[in-house]
Amino acid sequence: MIRTVSVAETAPSTYAWAVHAEKLQVRAGRHLAVNELDLRLGTGVHGLLGPNGAGKTTLMRALATVLKPAGGRLTLLGGEVTGNADLRQVRRGLGYLPQHFGFYPRFTVREFVEYIAWLKEMPKAVIPGAVQRAVERVGLADRADSRMKTLSGGMLRRAGIAQAIVNDPAVLLLDEPTVGLDPEQRLDFRELLREIGLDSCVLVSTHLVEDVAVACSDVVLISEGRLVWQGTTGQLTEQGAAGDAGDSATERGYSSVLRAYRGRVSA
């Protein structure tokens, strides 16, 4: 069946970067967890790396429009998020998996993803098909009608990814998506990431450098709420020397970049 394509779908995008932050400041409680961060992200899979407490989750929350920036400027999909802007249009193009994925235990996976699709204001007619597709893409089709409380940790994580991708988001934010996934599922997940990253902006926050090395095309490294380094995965690998800490080339690159940054800050 031929689908009608709306004007909005064929319109050229009017923004250069899907995610554009300038001197962004975000508070976590009273603490300024993201401080004067400049970030520009386009299409592709970006890995967000950083030590514990670097402000990864706070940044993800700000990008997901959960937290309001305390200062600076944040533009998502060409729409301003700072101030009292109407976030509705921007939010339709977002997909977000929080670090602590809260769900309704009595809902089945299908009901939950359907409910999220409805909250994302998807047209009623496309919801059942989109839900089934999302559930199939994360490999949960056989458990789609089980209640969420009966799922294992890895399955819940995949259900969380399904709700994030149900609306084919232009900006997909995944906070620690691989926690609880077994090695085989992790491979499938990387494949899915690469597929989605072909035409949308995916930001994956993780502390597993190996995930970034394999699944991501670009790396964003933050520390203490500031951007430390941004480049391709290959460039990060080149940063590392034989003497740096780490078991893989990417890990050596990571520790080398971080050490250099700390040296610059303390100097």
């Binding site: 959960v66 976030l87 249009q89 939010r91 339709r92 977002l94 977000y96 929080p98 909250l119 994302k120």
Partner: peptide, 8 residues
């Protein structure tokens, strides 16, 4: 946290 990021 999910509800907070929704258009609706």
């Amino acid at each position: 946290e999910l509800t907070a990021t929704m258009p609706r």
